[in-house]
Design a protein around this nucleic acid. Structure first.
Lengths: 199, 199, 199, 199
DNA sequence: GATGAATGAGAGTTCATTCAT
DNA sequence: TATGAATGAACTCTCATTCAT
């Protein structure tokens, strides 16, 4: 339990520090100070700086994947699934603003970090979205004209950018529901002014 | 003339290196080698490593801003403007794949780079999109229910993510028109299967 | 205790290296090697190269100031005080030949080192000499014709130059007493051949 | 004549820059800018940075040596010679304040500059003073108790320190005559209050 | 397990010097 | 001669990682 505690404390500290300074500007000693442990202690729980980031991505996304999967499993309607996915994502990101910053910033870096860097859970997470869209197409609920990969990117990119509204530096105070419904409205109904009802 | 050349060569080299390794993993000596100049030569054209990135963002975005602004100025229909914006963005990113990677990766880092870091042109670019959406709402072409800020994020995020399809590491071969039309279709008409024509 | 040791070792090494090569020609790695520590270790104890020199000047002069002040405090005769000042100065410089070299070489540089460079103790030290001379004048032991500032410079300059006789490169083997008495004889009695006793 | 001009301009510029920043902090480009020539031009007249300093010391001291020698050659009284030496030294230093700074600052550095550094004229200059004192002793005008080397140091050190009063940073406005007479008074008559005339 | 002083490889940057023009 | 852009060796300083306690 002591051990569990330290691991958790270091991860929490790292998320905070990475969010504030970015991975490359964050120093191990910053994390150690934030976690109130000695620098060396960090190396009892993590192999190196990279693996701290990797662990954050894996563990935190693991939680999201698990929760989202569970909720989606209960649904059969792809539209409802998409709703859930979007809402859960935004909810998770709002809950842990620092995490949102870390995830999105470092996702791009990941490929440049070194050979041993693989964010398995992240791929799994993207897979869920791909699955939803595929199912939607197959069930002929979503348009057949849409490319699955492209749509996944559209939604994912939009989510990523939307998640940033909760950063400390921004003054906007959107609710999860607000953003969620705007995104859904856009992708589902389009941005056109509704045509006047045909008499 | 010599001077102009070196500046350009260094910028081109830096875009390549930043795209491949990311800003923080890129070494000045990597850029120098790529540009076939001595390390010290770089400092005749740039104050420091940061300012190389800043210059890339400003100069390259400057070009895009200029081109896009010109094209949009000719239009009066917000939907057509949006079409142009999206297409131009994707076109620019496909043309310079490395730039796309740099832009998107480092945009997030920018805030963590130090006080003297300001990407003016970037803000200007975002402003164009905001303007289009505002106009669309005002002209009652776009839905009154849409929040301008939120929609801008949705489109921008989507574009950002879509732009990444041309990265060397990915094997997909989308055309600009393809991506462009998919995104427009999604945001304009929604992803729903078109309702069967009412008889 | 470890800490105290390292600080002292680095200072001692720096004095040696500065004396031999001068501040600007001295490399951090030279000092590190001399002190038998890693280069990086030096930065655990000092902010930068400048501050090593500053510390030397402050700490070493601090000792001299303290000792000299104590001894002088016991005296009331300005002539005796001057004798003490001169003797103590020469004694300190002979004891630490390298320090003498550093002090005198770098005193001039100090003003050109950067804003944050202030050798407080040094000023304090000069103040002692000024005080002695002022008192001598006030008590009418020293000539009223002498400008305090000028005399301080004469004595200080002489001491500075005399202190250099103990440098390794020179073969002279003067004793402190010898130099001290010569200087005192000169400034007190003048360099004239004593006039033949008036019959 | 063009050539002569450039050499002179560079020397003048170097004296100014060295005085202001010190030898090590002075950049070749500073000197070039001050002299209004290109950096590379400096290397048409001097082998390297060191040799600029060396040339300054040699040329400028050469002038002083020549002038002082001439004046002293006319005298036979060592006391008068000493008077001339001191006055000439101070006069030269006041005339070229920057030179004074350079000379005194760099004299100490000289030994640490590298093998090829020899300031011949400087030794010659010191020789003049040594000669005067020796002669004074031999002629039994100066005290037999004084060590020539020591006295030379006393006088030289005093002169060095006194010369600094004209630095820009200091506000004192002594005349050459004032300093000269104070120094002579001190070394000749001592600093004692003149004994009351015996009745 | 926990510490934090110590390490040292490696980074960005400077600037004396060179050389094509 | 004169230029000044280009060079690259060498510097100071940082910080992830180690290891004796």
């Amino acid at each position: 339990m002591r051990t569990e505690n330290k691991h958790t404390k270091i991860i929490a500290a790292a998320i905070k520090v990475f969010a504030k300074k970015g991975f490359f500007n964050a120093r191990i000693s910053d994390i150690a100070k934030e976690a109130k442990v000695a620098d060396g202690t960090i190396y009892l729980y993590f192999n190196n700086k990279n693996s701290i980031l990797l662990t954050i991505l894996e563990e935190e996304f693991g939680k999201i994947v698990e929760k989202t999967s569970t909720l989606i499993a209960r649904e059969s309607d792809p539209a409802a699934m998409l709703h859930i996915f979007i809402e859960q994502h935004l909810r998770a990101m709002k809950k842990n603003k620092n995490l949102a910053e870390v995830l999105h910033t470092e996702r791009r870096q990941a490929g440049k970090m070194g050979k041993d860097f693989r964010a398995e859970k992240f791929n799994e997470y993207e897979g869920i979205l791909t699955e939803i869209i595929s199912k939607g197409k197959k069930m002929e609920v979503f348009s057949q004209n849409l490319n699955v990969d492209v749509l996944r990117r559209i939604i994912f990119g939009a989510l990523e950018e939307l998640s940033r509204v909760w950063n400390d530096s921004l003054e906007t105070h959107y609710s999860v529901e607000e953003l969620s419904s705007q995104l859904l409205a856009t992708v589902f109904a389009g941005i056109h002014e509704p045509l006047p009802p045909t008499s």
